[in-house]
């Protein structure tokens, strides 16, 4: 226990690294995943702009992204990561596979949320002379916002668990910390402390997400 003073700053660093990895990849995931989910929805048969071929192609890519075990994805996208970040080691490099893993996941959740918006509301907007993009902007997205927020929360939580894995292969962060200081040095207390810390982060996120979604839900 006497070495906590030595370990503590490293734990703090690792926490920041995790938050950095998850934070940046969450933002990029939302920026890419929401439009992809919208595209999946509107191009589906019976959607606003049915494009069966495009829809099937997108569906295949999304399913591929979700079917691949994350650890394999990490290795597969290494060349892409090198192309974008210049290295495959470190927190910044981990953001690339994290994002690639999470985008298809979020896209499917977004698709499910948008599908739940009653067709009659879409029809009402069309009867007012709305363009398709107006329907997406003024009906589909606002009406499903509480459910979209819940989907983003689930995705961010999944990103935290992915980030622990990414950390173990050189991304830094809490996962890396738990392995180097806890597992490899037989310090169960450190492993446990890290797990508790991760749990606290996840709990806090879920709590905040739930609250946000609820505040958006229209009585």
């Amino acid at each position: 226990m006497s070495d906590w003073n030595r370990i503590y700053p490293q734990l703090l660093d690792a926490t920041w690294e995790t938050l950095y990895m998850v934070g940046v990849s969450a933002v990029v995931t939302v920026l890419l995943g929401v439009p992809l989910g919208v595209l999946l929805t509107v191009t589906s048969p019976g959607g606003l702009a049915p494009r069966p071929m495009l829809n099937r192609a997108l569906g295949l890519v999304v399913n591929l992204g979700r079917a691949l075990p994350f650890i394999i994805l990490l290795v597969l996208v290494a060349p892409v990561t090198r192309g974008i970040v210049g290295t495959t080691i470190g927190s910044t490099a981990a953001i690339v596979p994290l994002t690639i893993g999470a985008v298809p996941f979020l896209a499917r959740l977004v698709e499910t949320s948008l599908r739940e918006v009653a067709g009659g509301k879409v029809e009402a907007a069309l009867s007012m002379g709305a363009r398709r993009r107006d329907v997406v902007r003024t009906v589909l997205l606002p009406e499903s916002l509480p459910s979209l927020v819940a989907g983003v929360t689930v995705t961010v939580v999944a990103l935290i668990s992915y980030s622990a894995m990414a950390g173990a292969v050189g991304g830094g962060g809490l996962g890396d910390f738990a392995i180097r200081f806890g597992y490899q040095q037989f310090r169960t207390d450190i492993t446990l402390a890290t797990v508790v810390l991760l749990l606290v982060v996840v709990q806090a996120l879920q709590w905040a997400g739930d609250r946000w979604a609820r505040s958006l839900a229209h009585a």
């Binding site: 009653a118 509301k121 029809e123």
Partner: peptide
Amino acid sequence: MVFQHFELLDS
């Protein structure tokens, strides 16, 4: 146009 189930936006 007016619909049977109103179709108002809850948002």
